[in-house]
């Protein structure tokens, strides 16, 4: 028999059915998805890739903890978002970057770009990419020094000792198409470039994992990569095959990394599906334009940052229609 006197009535507002998903579990999924790329970069660049990533993660955690402590706010390092930012920041830097530079980059990523705007979810730029942009502007010589993959770095070697070479994108920019690595090398990742961007295969694995786990939706990455592919295909230069050119454009540089891990950041990408498609297409167009007409060989970083700044516009003008509302009301709601 039920003891009605002691039965507690719990009154709460909807939703009543909740999933166990929270920031921590989502970030954990993102970290898992990044592991193949990290493994590949350790294989390609040697153990220093891991050392740099660990330094980056540790300094991101330190700045996040330090800022929240200093401002007497609740500690937020438990949600693992700082770990993700740290890994992504290391992924977009060359492996020969000195350790102190990545600590400074982590400071800008975490404190200036994220915490000063109110912490997780309030930043309007992707922290890792903004950190990279600041590092490129501040330490251009370190940030454009690409280690050739054959050279395994010593753990604490100085950057001056390594041989450096051009990235595939730089070769494409110069029109030196016959010096490019093979498509297979580009796909597997045994090429020069930033720490985490080299292996398209590992990044794709991570992306598929994230889409299956429903951490990210397919709209942004697919729209982004497809736009780059289509525009490269129809605008290929005369002295290289159009399909080859498209493949090199899609596999080269940070496109995969940017499309899968950076452009899909919740806080800095649109909420609605059509908005996400436009966001992806915009990123793709800007990337191709910067690569082809800009002075930099790579445009992924800036194109995502620029589209980050347009996210509020996309969210403002693309609103979902109200379910079940008559047509007239739908139009009015859309007009608002």
């Amino acid at each position: 028999m039920t003891d009605y006197k002691n039965l507690k009535l719990i009154a709460s507002s909807s939703p009543h059915i909740r999933s166990n998903e929270d920031t921590r579990s989502i970030m954990l999924d993102v970290i898992i998805a990044m592991l193949p790329a990290l493994g590949m970069s350790i294989y390609v660049f040697g153990i220093q890739a891991l050392v740099l990533t660990l330094i980056s993660v540790a300094s991101c955690l330190f700045w996040e903890w330090g800022y929240r402590k200093l401002m007497k706010k609740s500690s937020s390092i438990g949600d693992l978002s700082a770990v993700v930012t740290g890994m992504l920041l290391a992924f977009v830097c060359p492996v020969s970057l000195p350790w102190w530079a990545i600590v400074i980059g982590a400071f800008f990523s975490i404190v200036v770009v994220k915490q000063l705007y109110g912490g997780i979810g309030c930043n309007f730029l992707n922290p890792a990419l903004a950190g990279r942009a600041i590092l490129v502007a501040s330490y251009a010589s370190f940030m454009t020094q690409w280690v050739t993959p054959a050279e395994k770095l010593p753990i604490f070697g100085s950057a001056a000792d390594v041989t450096t070479g051009s990235t595939p994108l730089a070769l494409m920019k110069d029109g030196a198409f016959n010096e490019l690595p093979t498509i297979r090398e580009m796909f597997l990742g045994t090429i020069g470039g930033s720490l985490g961007e080299v292996s398209a295969l590992a990044l794709l694995l991570g992306g598929i994992y994230l889409i299956i786990r429903k951490v990210i939706s397919w709209q942004i990455p697919v729209a982004y990569i497809a736009t780059v592919a289509v525009v490269s295909l129809i605008s290929a230069p005369a002295n290289i095959g159009a399909v080859d050119y498209m493949l090199y454009s899609v596999l080269g540089g940070g496109l995969m990394l940017g499309a899968i891990f950076m452009a899909t950041d919740y806080a800095t990408s649109p909420v609605t599906k059509p908005g996400q498609l436009i966001f992806g297409i915009g990123c793709g167009l800007l990337t191709v334009f910067i690569r082809r007409f800009g002075s930099y060989p790579e445009g992924v970083c800036y194109s995502i940052l620029i589209m980050n700044c347009c996210t509020w516009l996309l969210d403002k003008y693309i609103k979902p229609t109200i379910y079940g509302a008559p047509k007239k009301e739908k139009k009015e709601a859309a007009a608002k």
């Binding site: 102190w100 400074i104 200036v112 000063l116 600041i134 502007a137 501040s138 330490y139 251009a140």
Partner: peptide
């Protein structure tokens, strides 16, 4: 070690904002 971005216009905005 100089953080060159601070000597650029962006750095002016960042510093003034802070």
């Amino acid at each position: 070690f100089g953080i060159k971005i601070l000597t650029m216009p962006v750095g002016g905005f960042l510093t003034l904002g802070a």
